[in-house]
Nucleic acid binder design. Structure first.
Lengths: 218, 218
DNA sequence: TAGATTGTTAATCGATTAACAATC
DNA sequence: TAGATTGTTAATCGATTAACAATC
């Protein structure tokens, strides 16, 4: 029986990883798995896995472990993958096009319904049968189509403006690739993908490693 | 004077954000800033900012705060931005091309030296004056060019194979866009960008309210 | 039944926040 | 000097790990 708890971000961020590993196990026809075995594969502790899962329900069985298919499906439900999501991409530059072309998201139930840009050279071009529209049509499009997730791939200077349009038109989820923080009401969820921050984290760690070169550990 | 401490991942991941905000302040000709003021802008606590910075040195001054330019430069040093990095991209599909075209990384000192793919239709094409080479040349290229960071943009099935080549050729940093976990020796740093995990986190949070609706606590 | 492994409580560890003396 | 704000220690909070009774 699921408990009414506020789940910490730390737990939430591990869920997709569980889902990915269980999906692999499933494809390899593994029927059951213990928290210990899963822990060894993922690199978590068995204790953490059991704690994490027990935030959502009693999915396992003493003496047996977890049924892979069942757990996979349960985590799918938890992640909201039993429904579909309509999305639009704003900004059809490098990243926008890459995301638009990435068909794996379709398989998970994220359906791309529109692509917008302000560059006349891009407007009218199709990506996966979706014609790039003038961003001036965005607001109107959002009023006529229910969109769950707006994907922001514009330069940082324009990101907040696009976010404001999303908010105004009832889009509740924003996947933000612009290197800036957006301000939105609290009922709107923003998930950031800040590539430069990721790269800088890498360069920090590269130099930290250099620093300890020749020494043991780490 | 930097202290010999092991810095936690939580702190490291905040550093690029400090760097970004300080860069903005600098461009807006802000000369000094207190931890309180910076906290209000970023959305951290002043205490946390002071704690974070004091892992690396005494950058502030009582009664004054922090000099924006000085702190910006110091964090740049900490992040390893006083040197340059040679990079290669393996996989010239959607994401690979997007990263290759993203010139902001050049400005930070990350220089793209090569792009590799196995698709004959892509080999020979140029992106930003860099000719896409056959991935069969990768190992040879790495032996003749010092590459600091290898960027993996191939499908997940081939990612580990590419990582192995990187490791074998002395590449110490891997920026991994393939939706899989790589196994590498501990002196090699892997920074993952798992886009589907990010998207699933968003869909979880979009549905979170629904998930616990009507369920009783304990 | 006996062994295995969960769900869950308790202990530990780490990270964040609060407080304040030091000092510019 | 007086006010401001740091650097740093102490207190709190939260997350992870360990332990084990429950039970399949």
């Amino acid at each position: 029986m699921p408990k009414k708890t506020i789940i910490s971000m730390a737990v939430i961020k591990r869920l997709p990883k569980y889902y990915r590993y269980l999906g692999e196990l499933l494809r390899n026809d593994v029927e059951r798995i213990s928290s210990k075995e899963l822990a060894d594969r993922i690199g978590f502790t068995a204790s953490q896995i059991r704690q994490d899962l027990n935030n959502f329900g009693d999915f396992g069985q003493q003496g047996y472990g977890y049924n892979v298919r069942f757990l996979y499906e349960e985590i799918g439900k938890i992640l909201g993958l039993t429904r579909t999501y309509n999305t639009v991409i704003v900004g059809a530059g490098n990243i926008g096009q890459a995301i638009a072309n990435y068909t794996n998201f379709e398989k998970l139930g994220f359906h791309l319904k529109g692509i917008f840009d302000r560059n006349p050279k891009l407007i009218g071009i199709s990506i996966r049968d979706i014609v790039i529209q003038d961003v001036d049509n965005l607001e109107n499009f959002l009023k006529n189509n229910h969109i769950d997730i707006g994907i922001i791939c514009v330069p940082k200077e324009q990101a907040q403006k696009i976010a404001d349009i999303f908010v105004r038109c009832g889009v509740k989820g924003i996947w933000n690739f612009a290197p800036t923080d957006l301000s939105v009401p609290e009922d709107v969820i923003v998930e950031n993908v800040h590539l430069s921050e990721s790269l800088l984290t890498l360069s920090y760690r590269l130099n930290e490693a250099e620093l300890f070169k020749g020494k043991t550990g780490r």
